Simulated assay, not measured.
Amino acid sequence: MPLEPRLGHLLERAGSALARASARALVPYGVDVRELGVLAVLAGEEPLSQGEAAGRLGVDRTTMVSLLDGLEDHGLVERRRGAPDRRRNIVGLTDAGRVCLERAQAARSAAERRFLAPLEERAAAALLDALRTLVAADPAGR
């Protein structure tokens, strides 16, 4: 059986193409997709510790520290000691981080729209709905 009609192969190729397009779109902002995810999580209403942010992103603490180190080096996030528990680092966006997040998210969204452009609007919406359904139905992904 040729590879082309296999679902896994098609999903992998489509995912790779979207990842490349997203990466290109983010270059001007100096962040990658994972770093953009960190900025998005940190932009929430409540302040988060490094550990809480890692949990929301599904990454281990060592990876989270590395991601935050890079973002902090670029002036996009800042760490401060937690008030009641000084062992906890609370992480937040700087003003530059908020600007970067807004612009980078817009660029990533535009890249996604360009990626889906070959599909009619209804087909693109149906694809997104189908993927959401499959992800929601996967108990291991929760």
Rank of each mutant, 00 (worst) to 15 (best):
M1W: 06
P2Y: 03
L3Y: 13
E4W: 12
P5G: 01
P5Q: 01
L7I: 15
G8F: 07
G8S: 12
L10K: 13
L10T: 11
L10M: 13
R13T: 08
A14Q: 04
S16G: 15
S16L: 15
S16R: 15
L18Q: 12
A19L: 09
A19Y: 04
A21C: 07
A23E: 15
A25P: 04
A25K: 08
L26W: 13
L26M: 05
L26G: 09
V27F: 01
V31M: 11
V31T: 10
V31K: 05
D32M: 01
D32N: 15
V33H: 07
L36P: 07
L39T: 03
L42I: 05
A43T: 08
G44C: 07
E46L: 12
L48T: 02
Q50K: 09
G51P: 00
E52Y: 04
E52Q: 15
A53G: 05
A53F: 08
A53E: 12
A54K: 01
R56G: 10
L57R: 11
G58I: 10
V59Y: 02
V59N: 03
T62E: 09
T63M: 08
M64I: 09
M64L: 06
V65H: 14
S66K: 14
S66R: 15
D69Q: 14
G70R: 15
L71C: 01
L71I: 08
E72W: 11
E72T: 11
H74Q: 15
G75V: 03
E78P: 02
R79D: 04
R81P: 07
A83F: 14
P84A: 12
R86L: 13
R88H: 07
R88K: 11
I90G: 01
T94K: 05
A96H: 10
R98I: 02
V99L: 12
C100Y: 07
L101S: 04
L101E: 06
R108F: 03
R108L: 11
S109K: 10
E112Y: 03
R113N: 02
R114C: 00
F115P: 06
F115N: 07
A117Q: 11
P118M: 05
L119N: 01
L119E: 02
R122L: 09
A123Q: 13
A124I: 10
A125L: 15
L127I: 04
L127W: 08
L128F: 03
R132T: 02
L134I: 02
A137E: 08
P139I: 01
P139C: 00
R142P: 00
